[in-house]
């Protein structure tokens, strides 16, 4: 019984991880500008890889390997969110304007190019 519960926790956590990876990939391909794409892809690492690693740690039943997996999950959590922050900050400081649904009064080709850069 206990085994079944633990295994279902693993499966649920891994499914959550896969869901976030899929959503993050879709977001990377579909969202309009760098900031929203970053927002989508950092979810892949933090929530996706994080919950898969935690699920595997549960699957290992709390032995030394699961401690390693938890440390890995912590590392991924810290580094990936920092990377996202650094990229977004650099893009913002470099003058990249966040995308808006209504383009400000002059909808030219130039604004599209600025967003792509």
């Amino acid at each position: 019984m206990f085994e079944i519960v633990l295994n279902s926790i693993t499966i649920i956590l891994c499914c959550i991880g896969i869901f976030f990876f899929v959503v993050g990939t879709v977001g990377l391909l579909r969202l309009p500008d760098a900031f929203s794409r970053l927002h989508a892809t950092t979810k892949c690492d933090t929530l996706g890889a994080g919950s898969i690693l935690v699920g595997l740690a549960v699957y290992e039943r709390g032995n030394f390997d699961s401690a390693k997996l938890l440390i890995l999950a912590f590392l991924v959590l810290v580094t990936s969110s920092t990377t996202g922050h650094a990229l977004a900050r650099a893009a913002f400081k470099a003058g990249l304007k966040p995308w808006r649904k209504e383009q400000p009064s002059f909808p030219e080709e130039g604004s599209e190019g600025a967003v792509e850069a």
Partner: peptide, 15 residues
């Protein structure tokens, strides 16, 4: 003029 971000500095120091 911008300087490194506090978050990145802290995490790099930690890691």
């Amino acid at each position: 003029p911008v300087g490194p971000s506090l978050i990145v500095t802290t995490v790099v120091k930690l890691l």
